[in-house]
Design a protein around this nucleic acid. Structure first.
Lengths: 343, 343
DNA sequence: GTGAAAGCGCTAACAC
DNA sequence: GTGTTAGCGCTTTCAC
C-alpha cells in the first residue's frame, strides 16, 4: 500500500547497465553470467517484479482468459470453472469471471466486449445460442470456446455433451428398475439444455415403446429447486386421479430432482420405494443428499478441462480450424433409484 | 477471430483529425459537437473499441480486482464471489479469480504477486493468518481487503463475522430444544475458522453450565462432508457405551453437519428426533437438504458486498485508514432441530 | 477547440 | 554480449 513499485528502468540504473540488458538478464536469454548476476541482485534489492500491463501491451498478450456464464452461483458452472482454472493456471493464465446475469448483459454483448482486448480468449456458456451470437463469436478478435452445443460446423470450437442421450440413459435406468409410468421434469424449453433434454426424453420413451398415457411432462420455470418443487407438485397432482401413479421422475438436472423429492415427500410418497428420481449433472448436492441422488454426469469438470485445452490450442494458433470435443454422459446409480418393489 | 481491431490512430486518420481530438471526442470532454459527431462516425465505421491494456498502462488502473481463496469450489466462497461481483461490476471492475489450492501457492505468495500490477486490489480469504501474511499485505502496492479475522488493528481492512458467537447461538438453540448432551463437530483447529469456532463452543458450554461429561468434541480432517462423516462416526461410537447418548450435534459448517446426519442415519438414529444437528454458513445445500438444516448464517453474500464496498473506498483513496466491518451471525432454525421429544 | 508530443513499462529489432 | 531506439495504444499536458 505504501511502497511504490520499481520499474525496469530503475533496476537498470541501479545495476548500471542498459534497459535492454536488464530485460534480457531477467529473462535469461543471451546475457552473460556476470550480467545476469548483477541485474538479479539489483532487482532483488529493489523488490522488482515485472509490470503485467507494460508487458501485455508490448507482447500483445494479456495472459488472461474470460469465463462467461449466466450465473456464477450455479454449482455446475463452479465445477467447470474449477476444471478450467486447473488447466489454465499452470500455463500462466488468469481467469476473469464474467456473468450475463447481474446486469442486463447478454452473451452477445459479452462476446462483443472482447473488442477491448482485456483477455486472450473466452470460454462461454450461453443459455441460448442464436445466429447473432455465432456471428459475433466468429468475428471476435480472440478465440472463443463454447461449452454447450456442438458448433464446429459453424466454425466455432466447442465442447458438447449429449444430454439428450443422457436423459435416455436415465429413462432406461428407471425402466430396468421396473418403473412403468415416468414423469419428465424439465426446465425452460427455450434454453439449449431444456430443448435438448426434451428431445432426449421424447426419443427415449418412443424407442422404449411407451404409450402416451404412461408419460407425463412438466416444465419448470427455471432450473432451480424452488421451480422444480412447484412443477413437481403439478406433476404429482396431475396424475392423482389415475389408476396408476407415476413411479419414476426423470429430472433435467439435480436441482429439479431435489425439488421433485421434496414434492414426493409432501405427497406422502417415499423415494425410491414409491417413486424413483433421477437428476442430471452429478453435483455435490446430489451426491450428499439423502437419499443420494442417481444422476447423469455430464462431466462438468471434464468439460472445463476440455474447453481449456481447446483454448490453449487456439491461443497457440488462432487460425487453426474449429475443433469440437464431446464428453459422454454417464449415469451414476445411487439410492434415489434403488431396487425395491414399487407399490 | 479474423478481423483485427482498430486503433485510436486509425480512427483519427479516418476522421481526418488529430489523435488527441479523437480521444477527447470519444470521452466527450472538451470537444466541439461537430468533432464529436465526426469522430463517432469514424469509430462506428471501423468498429472501434478502446484497448483496455493501452488505457490501463496510461491510466495506471487495470479495472480489475482479484478474489483469492483456497478453493473456489467451496459454496461459501462462491456466494461471496457473487456478492463481490454484484457490487464491483456496476463500477466497471472485472473480477479475477485466484486460488491457493491448485498449485502449492500460499496466500502470502498470492499477495506478493500483486507486485506485477495486474489488478487494482485484492479481496482475500486466507485459511490461516500469520504475521508474515499481514506484513505482506501491508506492503502490497494495491489495497487488500481480508475476509475472515478482524484485522484493522494491524492496519488491514477486513470483514469479519463472529463465528464463535454463532456457535454459541447454535448451542443455546439446541439447549432450548431440550437437548442435554452436545457433540461438537469441528474442522481443523489450525485454521482461522476452526480455532474461532472451538473458542465459541468452549465458551458457550461453560456459560451454559455444562459439565464435561455432557460434551464431546471431535475434529474432522477437513471442512467436507466426507471428513465430517468420518469424524461423526467417531463421535457417535465414542458415546455408544454411555448411559446417555448425544442428543445434539453442533457442526462447524454445513458440510460437516451433512456428514453428521449421514453418520446418525447409519447409526440408526433419527434426525431430529434422536439427535438434533446444526450447521453453519446457511448454504443452499443445507436449505434444500432433507431434513432441511438448521444453520448459523454468517452472511456470505453480505460479507462479499461489504468487502467489495471497502475495496471501492480504498481504490478511491488508498491511504485512508483501515476500516473494518462486522457481519453478525444469525441462526436460522429448520427441520434438523425441530421440536420433538428426544428419546 | 484543436494539434503536437511526451510518456506509462516493457520487449525486440537493430547496430556495434 | 551489450547498448540505443522504436513502438505497443492510450491519455494528457502544453502550445496555439
Amino acid at each position: 500500500m505504501t511502497s511504490t513499485r520499481a520499474t525496469l528502468m530503475q533496476v537498470a540504473e541501479r545495476a548500471g547497465v542498459s534497459l535492454a540488458s536488464t530485460s534480457r538478464a531477467l529473462h535469461g536469454t543471451g546475457a552473460s553470467k556476470a550480467m545476469v548476476e548483477r541485474v538479479r541482485a539489483a532487482a532483488a534489492e529493489l523488490g522488482y517484479s515485472a509490470d503485467a500491463i507494460g508487458r501485455s501491451l508490448r507482447m500483445k498478450k494479456t495472459s488472461q482468459i474470460a469465463f462467461a456464464v449466466a450465473d456464477i452461483g450455479n454449482p455446475v458452472y463452479v465445477e467447470m470453472m474449477r476444471g478450467i482454472h486447473e488447466v489454465l493456471a499452470p500455463h500462466g493464465y488468469r481467469v476473469v469471471v464474467m456473468t450475463t446475469g447481474d446486469t442486463a448483459t447478454s452473451a452477445t454483448e459479452l462476446v462483443r466486449s472482447l473488442n477491448s482486448g482485456f483477455v486472450d480468449g473466452m470460454i462461454l456458456i450461453p443459455l441460448r445460442t442464436d445466429d447473432r451470437l455465432i456471428t459475433e463469436i466468429r468475428r471476435a478478435p480472440v478465440p472463443v470456446v463454447v461449452i454447450g452445443r456442438a458448433l464446429s460446423e459453424h466454425g466455432v470450437s466447442s465442447v458438447s455433451t449429449d444430454s439428450a442421450a443422457g436423459i435416455g440413459q436415465a429413462v432406461r435406468h428407471v425402466r430396468s428398475r421396473g418403473r412403468r409410468r415416468i414423469g419428465f421434469l424439465n426446465g425452460p424449453l427455450d434454453t439449449t439444455p431444456g430443448a435438448a433434454r426434451q428431445r432426449g426424453f421424447d426419443a427415449a420413451v418412443r424407442a422404449d415403446g411407451f404409450t402416451a398415457d404412461r408419460v407425463e411432462t412438466e416444465v419448470a420455470d427455471d432450473f432451480t429447486v424452488a421451480a422444480g418443487l412447484a412443477a413437481a407438485r403439478r406433476l404429482f397432482s396431475r396424475g392423482a386421479g389415475r389408476a396408476e401413479r407415476l413411479d419414476a421422475v426423470v429430472a433435467a438436472n439435480d436441482l429439479l430432482a431435489i425439488g421433485a423429492i421434496r414434492a414426493a415427500r409432501e405427497a406422502g410418497l417415499s423415494v425410491p420405494d414409491d417413486v424413483a428420481v433421477t437428476g442430471m449433472d452429478d453435483t455435490e448436492l446430489g451426491r450428499v443428499f439423502l437419499p443420494s441422488l442417481t444422476s447423469v454426469s455430464l462431466g462438468s469438470a471434464e468439460r472445463g478441462h476440455a474447453a481449456a485445452g481447446l483454448m490453449l490450442g487456439l491461443t497457440d494458433d488462432p487460425d487453426q480450424p474449429a475443433r469440437q470435443v464431446a464428453v459422454g454422459p454417464e449415469l451414476i446409480a445411487r439410492e434415489s433409484t434403488a431396487d425395491g418393489s414399487p407399490r
